[in-house]
Write a protein that binds this DNA or RNA. Structure first.
Length: 274
DNA sequence: ACGAGGTCCTGCGAGC
DNA sequence: TGCTCGCAGGACCTCG
């Protein structure tokens, strides 16, 4: 499931293929992923556009197309990649968007469950959208002190707060579980009751884990693929996610699984995360 | 203002 | 064997 490291990997993989390329022919096979735009407008504005640059913000891949920002949020099962091989009807079954590039390759947005979204925003709309998202965890401008203050803004469980995109951008279920384990914090603790020291430790672990996951080109549990079509490898380094009932790698205690927080799979070690 | 819970969407695996 | 059902969960919505 694409969180920050997975989207960062997609963007890095795509950059050399897309920089300076222009969009020749745009096909949209599904419209339910469109957010605040209709098919004809999207196709009209994308066709002929040139990719000036690519970036990532939170869990979004952002293609800069002149005045427009094409914002792809892969959701659970979305992936963005470039291919030069023609796609069979079977391969194309989950393709949502197909863009023929001026070098005759194709940029594909594929999304099995279509929980992802596509947006096309002008500068102002992008600025507004960007401002609605919390700070980037890897941006060192976010100090431990500020992070502590962010957490103090909610009484929600710390795990839910970590995943709240308005508070902190880019962390989803997998990395929230991992960071809380690494920081030794019980996922159900209210965010506003996390002390200054534990908050600093948590920010440090969030950064360490996200960086290591980018280094490993993301976590592939099921559907996530890099911009190259290959899986990532950080799933090999997961300490708690998906390991409910298995022994804690640090102390051997059986890992606890619960769905009590935000109805999401939470796995933790009750001994290491008191 | 906040929190709890429902909804979207499809594939997959468990259970009958 | 073939069916149904619950689950996976990010973002967004409604309700209390």
């Amino acid at each position: 499931m694409p969180e920050l490291p997975e989207v960062e990997t997609m963007v890095r993989d795509l950059r050399p293929h897309l920089l300076g390329r222009s969009f020749r022919e745009v096909r949209l096979r599904r419209t339910d992923v469109l957010k605040d735009i209709r098919r004809p407008q999207l196709i009209q504005r994308l066709t002929g556009a040139t990719v000036d640059s690519l970036s990532r913000r939170a869990k979004h891949a952002v293609l800069h197309l002149g005045q427009w920002r094409f914002v792809v949020q892969p959701g659970m099962t979305g992936s963005l990649f470039v291919t030069d091989a023609p796609r069979s009807e079977e391969e194309a079954h989950y393709d949502v968007l197909t863009v023929r590039l001026d070098d005759w390759r194709e940029l594909i947005y594929r999304d099995i469950r279509r929980l992802g979204t596509l947006r096309l925003l002008d500068q102002r709309a992008w600025q507004r959208y960007d401002a609605s998202l919390g700070p980037e965890p890897l941006d060192l401008a976010l100090t431990p002190d500020e992070f502590h203050k962010v957490l103090a803004r909610t009484r929600q469980a710390i795990k839910k707060a970590l995943m709240d995109q308005r508070l902190l951008a880019g962390v989803g279920n997998i990395y929230a579980n991992e960071a809380l384990f690494a920081a030794g914090i019980d996922p159900s603790r209210p965010a506003d009751r996390i002390g200054h020291e534990p908050a600093a430790r948590l920010l440090e672990e969030v950064r360490r884990i996200l960086s290591a996951a980018i280094e490993a080109e993301g976590t592939t549990v099921r559907d996530y693929r890099r911009g190259t079509g290959e899986p990532g490898s950080f799933q090999l380094e997961l300490q708690v996610y998906g390991r409910e009932g298995e022994p804690c790698r640090r102390c051997g205690t059986r890992l606890t699984g619960t769905h009590l927080i935000d109805a999401r799979a939470t796995v933790f070690c009750h001994r290491c995360q008191p």
